[in-house]
Amino acid sequence: MRVLVLGASGYVGSAVAEQLTDAGHQVVELVRPGRSGQAEQAGGRERRIGDLTDPGSLTASVTPDIDALVHLASPTGDAATDAAAVDALTAPLRGTGRAFVYTSGVWVLGATGAATADETAATDPIPIVANRPDIERRVLATGADGVRASVVRPGIVHGRGGGIPALLVELARKHGAPRIVGDEGVRWPAVHVDDLADLFVKVVGQALAGTVWHGVSEPAVPVRELAAAAGQAAGVQAEPEVWPLAEAAAELGASFAEALALDQSVSGDAAREQLGWRPQAPDAVTDLRSGSYRARS
């Protein structure tokens, strides 16, 4: 298939583009104006021009030769703009049965408490992702109009020395001790970026219209363990310490600090059972302690 990928140069997007290519698909990158000319090739890939704030450019990019579209670009943060972008991208797909995969995240579920949330759980988003459930519903509704639309909700992504775990390493180095935002008992759902990319490939090829998938290989990793491993990657010997939410908010911003303090347990079993997803990469603590993060410390 020819797959148009928004955000193909990003942390997750670059891994998804690589694995789509390895699976035999042809990736076409959608990039913002000024990044390249319309016909320029990027690493052998065709590039097209589009901007999330310009719906016309998005619709024009989804030509009949595009078999599937994966939206991995960061949202603009404006609800109306992000909704208009989804409408513009899906308009050429309506009635065709072609795939549209939208990237959301597990933060839309809010704090899960003692239960483990699967894809049927109600959303209760924290402020940083307040608009995401509405966008998810907008995407899934296109299934009734002949779009093979799916939503992927990744957990906390690690691997290749990037993502939020890289921030834990940076914070440990900066403060001289690993940091746990808010509460020592916080848990994060986690997934390696390579395993997540494999899930996207499977969703593009197999998922039915109107489906939601949790990109989670570890349902509830104690952040204390992640922080301790981040300290080892940073060469810091001190034990992890709790960072009061107000202090973390002053440095990181209130919405992001609240997200880091979110306690969740989230299941990714549906993708294993229905799509044959088999995560193979190292777990998050091992990756931080002795994998890609130590290599970059």
Rank of each mutant, 00 (worst) to 15 (best):
V5N: 03
G7I: 00
Q19E: 13
V27L: 12
V28R: 11
S36T: 15
G44R: 10
R48G: 13
G50D: 01
D54E: 12
P55K: 01
S57Y: 14
I66R: 01
A80G: 05
A84C: 01
P92E: 09
P92G: 11
R94C: 03
G97N: 06
F100T: 14
V101H: 08
V101Y: 05
S104P: 08
W107F: 08
V108P: 10
T112P: 14
T112H: 07
A114W: 04
E119R: 09
A122W: 07
A122N: 06
V129D: 08
R132P: 04
R132K: 03
P133V: 00
R137A: 15
V139N: 04
A141V: 00
A144Y: 05
G146I: 01
G146M: 07
G155M: 14
G155W: 13
G159H: 09
G161P: 10
G163S: 03
L168W: 14
V169I: 02
R173F: 01
P178F: 06
I180K: 05
G182H: 07
W188N: 08
D194V: 11
D195M: 09
L199E: 02
F200G: 09
A209N: 03
G210V: 00
T211M: 08
R224V: 12
A228Y: 05
A229Y: 13
P240Q: 02
L245Y: 06
A246L: 10
S255L: 12
A270S: 07
G276L: 14
S292E: 04
